[in-house]
Amino acid sequence: MSLKINIRKAFPDFVLNVELDADDGVLALLGGSGCGKSLTLKCIAGIEKPDSGRIVINGQVVFDSDKNINIPPQGRNVGFLFQNYALFPTMTVLGNIASVVEGKKLHRLAVAGEIADKFGLESVKNLYPREISGGQQQRTALARILVRKPQILMLDEPFSALDTHLRWHMEQEMAVVLADFSGVTLVVTHDRDEAYRMSGKIAVMNEGRLDCIGDKDDIFTNPKTLEAARMTGCKNISKAEKTGDYAVYAVDWGITLKTVKPVTDRVKHIGVRSHHFQPGLGENSFPITVHGSINEPFSRIWLFAFNENAEKLQFATKCEGCAPNALSVPPDKILLLE
């Protein structure tokens, strides 16, 4: 099963232009707010109509601007989990699930009751959505979606409406549900950890375009683009100028670094993750000026600069201790970004 999209939709101040292929498994769409990731889901579901392009779900063309095909959302059978779950407030948990089942009323209630039990909603099935917890609301929404056996699953920021402690719990429940679903699953998130834990592949989106796509480990250890580095949490990024086949000048930091990987002409930025700096001397080591520190729950972040007037960087360390006076940048940890 597969999903193929190639769509364009223009707004006065924003253009969505996405080309994306997805196979079975979970693909995370990672991007900042306003990058068009939710809009992409809405186009696939048929809630929004692209200006032009083509969308193919499991071999069925649901949208093709050249052939004038635009199947309404009702005919696409996609499972769309909304950020706020979008439960029907005037119906009970059981009513919400039963309302999407076809057939006679008794049959609908029987099917709905069965899936409600399976999702652990037995005790709340006669309550209204606002009378149950956030986790139960999400389970109700999932049950309501899965009872129709959708072609693909799309989850829009599935955990953003939950408290931190519930989030972790629901994420594990979701993992079980997703493992059970044999088809394409798209998860929209701006949280890199969530993206990493839930997905097999990650697509990074930026300003309405697909920035890059790849296996999650590849995207995290070896991001190729500026946006991929940013979205995977790289805090230290500088403009870069190539100075040799294995050397690059970090413009914002005022230092020249040796690299392990060859520097191509397309490299415009470099990045170093804050936990990759090494205190003390070594290759690529420079004296630093420490500007301050921030205590995180289990680590400490030093704010420093390699030169006066240069941009401040972050260095994260697990251990307590006094401020380092020199840091080295391991050449194999430098991210070369296009």
Binding site: K42, G46, P73, Q74, N77, S99, R148
Partner: peptide, 12 residues
């Protein structure tokens, strides 16, 4: 979103 959800769930 409730209306959108209903559409994706096949409501006429």
């Amino acid at each position: 979103n409730v209306i959108y959800a209903a559409q994706t769930l096949g409501f006429s």
